[in-house]
Computed example of a mutant assay.
Amino acid sequence: MNKHRIYTTSVAGVYPHYVTKAEKKGRTKTEVDEIIRWLTGYSQEEFEAQLEKQTDFETFFAEAPGMNPSRNLIKGVICGVRIEEIEETTMREIRYLDKLVDELAKGKAMEKILRKQ
């Protein structure tokens, strides 16, 4: 089975779209970065290094220092697919990120986006 094209797409190629989506709705690049750091465990410096290296999504998530255990609380539909039903791990991680950025753009509070109890 062939891998989905997003796996070999660089995070740096998609990241500006995440930022633009957030900024169009009055949110900030800093908030997008916070979401990414929360999800993956990268520090800001490590994240920026991944962007600089043009790391693809598959490697980005495989090398993440510590995926947040609360990410399994992220539920809902993204691109017509229910996140909790995605079996392939890397695709599910990508969709978690997409969903978090969507929630940010929709004006949801950071505490709720970051699943703080």
Results as ranks from 00 to 15, higher is better:
Pro16Ile: 00
Asp56Trp: 01
Asp33Glu: 15
Thr59Trp: 03
Thr55Met: 05
Thr89Trp: 09
Arg95Pro: 00
Val14Arg: 00
Met1Trp: 12
Arg115Leu: 10
Ser70Glu: 12
Glu48Asn: 11
Val32His: 01
Thr59Gln: 13
Thr90Leu: 14
Trp38Leu: 02
Ala49His: 03
Thr30Tyr: 12
Ile94Ala: 05
Arg92Ile: 04
Lys25Cys: 09
Ala62Tyr: 12
Arg115Lys: 15
Arg71Asp: 03
Leu73Gly: 01
Phe60Val: 03
Glu52Arg: 11
Phe47Cys: 10
Tyr18Val: 00
Ala109Met: 10
Arg92His: 05
Lys24Ile: 05
Arg5Tyr: 15
Ala64Ser: 14
Phe61Gln: 03
Leu39Gln: 10
Arg92Thr: 02
Ala49Trp: 08
Tyr18Thr: 03
Glu87Phe: 14
Asp56Ser: 10
Tyr96Glu: 02
Gln50Ser: 07
Arg5Asp: 14
Arg95Glu: 12
Ala64Phe: 06
Glu52His: 10
Leu114Arg: 04
Asn72Tyr: 13
Leu114Val: 06
Glu63Thr: 12
Arg37His: 09
Met91Lys: 08
Ile35Ser: 09
Arg27Ile: 02
Glu48Ser: 11
Ile78Thr: 03
Phe57Val: 06
Leu51Met: 14
Glu46Ile: 02
Ala105Trp: 07
Arg71Leu: 06
Lys106Trp: 13
Met67Asn: 12
Leu104Ala: 00
Trp38Met: 02
Lys106Glu: 15
Lys3Pro: 13
Ile94Lys: 04
Tyr42Val: 02
Ala49Glu: 13
Met67His: 13
Met91Pro: 01
Tyr42Leu: 02
Ser70Tyr: 13
Lys116Gly: 06
